[in-house]
Design a protein around this nucleic acid. Structure first.
Lengths: 190, 190
DNA sequence: GTCATTTTGGACCACACAGTCCAATTTCAA
DNA sequence: TTGAAATTGGACTGTGTGGTCCAAAATGAC
């Protein structure tokens, strides 16, 4: 896999996106290589050509792809939390996103599937949360320079993660609404 | 399975507890019926005798068993949140429990494995959270009769769920500590 | 134009593992 | 004591599925 012609890169891309779509819809446990092959009009040899280590290798790429999406979906709000109105917009954005995907949280499903075994998965997840928390903390510093920005950001990340978990578990979006709203409110009146 | 002699009941129990232990340790995806058979000194026919619908049936029983444990582990604190000192003790208890199990959260692993497909799983999880939230809300009413007890309880459940999720994802207990501490603090100074 | 390299097709393999089956043994009520 | 029902042992089967292999076709550098 030293060189990679444009055609090859396109195929690889098609595989990742097709697999991501399938997994988002049906869950990683219910998607086999044959399903991915069929959905992306590829062959077995292509799958293993672009992902020499097999399925786990592919799921890793899918996980990285999904992690990107999580943060991208929150732009431009997340990177510009400079007024309370912006904070509100961001919150609404996050809630809307989760309300839309309902019980289908691709990242939690993937991490659960890949598990703690693979340290590379941990890096992806940790990195994503780290960037996420960093951007929130930056926002906190602009509206509340005196607050413990990292702590507040950690609280918000926790509230979001909890809200998402409860959404998946109980199909109830209110946990996310309450958690995020309270965290922002808390910051505001500090 | 109409009748169930004491011997049979004991065997069934042994299977559930043995399977739960194994799954807690290795994750549901990495535990096969043969592993359970070996660990519980039973035979294939026994497994299917007590769980006619096979593995999913068994995992359901394991999930119910684990859900019990979650609440049991918090007693007697959870059912007696009548003073701030009691709230602190409860919080410490919850944090200690999660710190001990570290990244191995049996419930989240099991729900991820069984998935949203099975409505029976949803009932177990929803029921557990419902009872949990109810007990917290009862505690809120004793220390803050004027507060919106259900909302506060929901916030705390969300903080715990988020803390647990982040603990699994990043192996960092601080999200749980911060979330729970802030939630209680918030209630206290309201 | 030609030759090496990349890309592709798809048949085939290996095996893990859920689930079946039947016979042997134990339990317990009458 | 006896016999029906529950319990147990373990060999066997079937299949879903990840992974291998090799040859054919496309690509691109020179």
């Amino acid at each position: 896999m030293r060189a990679l012609t444009p055609k090859g890169a396109a195929t690889r891309q098609r595989i990742v996106e097709g697999a991501a779509l399938l997994i988002r819809e049906h869950g990683p446990a219910n998607v086999g290589l044959d399903d991915i092959r069929a959905a992306t009009t590829t062959s077995k040899s292509q799958l293993f050509h672009y992902f020499p280590d097999g399925k786990s290798d592919m799921l890793l790429a899918v996980a990285a792809h999904e992690a990107e999406r999580v943060l991208d979906d929150q732009q431009p709000y997340l990177s510009d939390l400079t007024s309370w109105a912006q904070w509100e917009s961001w919150r609404d954005r996050v809630i809307a996103r989760y309300a839309a995907q309902r019980r289908k949280c691709p990242l939690s499903a993937l991490t659960a599937q890949l598990g703690l075994a693979n340290p590379a998965v941990g890096d992806i997840i940790t990195g994503m949360y780290s960037r996420w928390q960093g951007q929130i903390a930056a926002g906190v510093r602009t509206v509340r320079p005196d607050a413990d920005a990292e702590r507040v950001a950690a609280q918000m990340i926790g509230a979001i993660a909890g809200g998402a978990t409860m959404l998946v578990a109980t199909d109830d979006i209110r946990y996310l609404e309450i958690g995020l709203t309270e965290a922002i409110e808390n910051l505001r009146r500090d």
